[in-house]
């Protein structure tokens, strides 16, 4: 079973320097970092560990970078793609549990969830999105996920390229394609430094809420029930 670990990274040189050695010890899977047009030496850090790094020449955001890794996996015939954040929030020692869940065929997508980690405000936003999108998934934003080949095929496609965030839009697309999503609880670390890319300022939050709401409304009735 060929597995690729995809890590989207924007200015994460410091965090990657801590994460990558731990990750290499914890797993045997291939590791791919997608550098989302960083201005620091993210690329150099990854290279120093002798790992593969794709460099985007235009900034595409977290989802655009992740999709690059997914397309890479599809091209190179990987069976599974595991995505994780570069900021150290997702723990390398939890990877084997998530991978086991997918190889036991509990679902096409396994999400490692840790709902306790988020703020109350974010929880309210989640409840709202779950209400209007009818997604029955606890943790909407967790980027700690494994996709199998069917899911990779759906997400590598053109349709997924116009999504701006990797949470609700991606989940809706997967559900619409009749794929099964399962969650398993995992431990997560507190963010070591830097803030969430999505919830960083009020203007950004507002834009995110509006866009995601539109997306949810547009998708009413488009998917099979989960």
């Amino acid at each position: 079973m060929k597995t690729l670990i995809v890590i989207p990274a924007f200015n994460e040189a410091g965090n990657l320097a801590q994460l990558l050695p731990k990750l290499r010890q914890a797993v045997t899977a291939d590791i791919l970092v997608v550098d989302d047009f960083s201005t620091d030496d993210t690329f150099q850090v990854v290279r120093n560990y002798g790992l593969a790094c794709l460099r985007l020449s235009i900034q595409l955001g977290a989802w655009g970078a992740t999709q690059t890794g997914i397309r890479y996996a599809k091209r190179h015939g990987y069976d599974y793609v595991l995505t994780m954040d570069a900021d150290g929030q997702h723990l390398p020692e939890e990877i084997s549990r998530i991978l086991r869940a997918i190889s036991d065929q509990h679902g096409d997508v396994i999400i490692g969830t840790c709902p306790h980690r988020v703020s109350r405000l974010k929880k309210i936003a989640w409840r709202f999105f779950k209400l209007i999108s009818r997604i029955r998934i606890e943790d909407l934003t967790s980027g700690f996920r494994v996709y199998n080949q069917q899911a990779i095929k759906v997400l590598a496609d053109k349709t997924a390229s116009l999504l701006d965030y990797q949470d609700v839009g991606v989940l809706l697309l997967l559900l619409r394609s009749d794929l099964k999503i399962k969650e398993i609880p995992v431990k997560m670390a507190l963010r070591q430094d830097g803030k969430s890319r999505v919830f960083s300022s009020w203007v950004v939050v507002f834009k995110y809420m509006l866009q995601t709401t539109t997306l949810c409304i547009a998708n009413i009735g488009a998917k099979k029930s989960q």
């Binding site: 997608v34 593969a52 790094c53 794709l54 460099r55 985007l56 020449s57 235009i58 595409l60 655009g64 999709q67 690059t68 397309r71 890479y72 091209r75 053109k158 390229s161 116009l162």
Partner: peptide, 20 residues
């Protein structure tokens, strides 16, 4: 414009893969 945006994103991703 959306179509263009989609094409630009796909091309950027492809370029990164080809470069590597």
């Amino acid at each position: 414009l959306s179509r263009k945006e989609q094409k630009i994103r796909r091309l950027t991703q492809r370029l990164a893969m080809l470069e590597a």
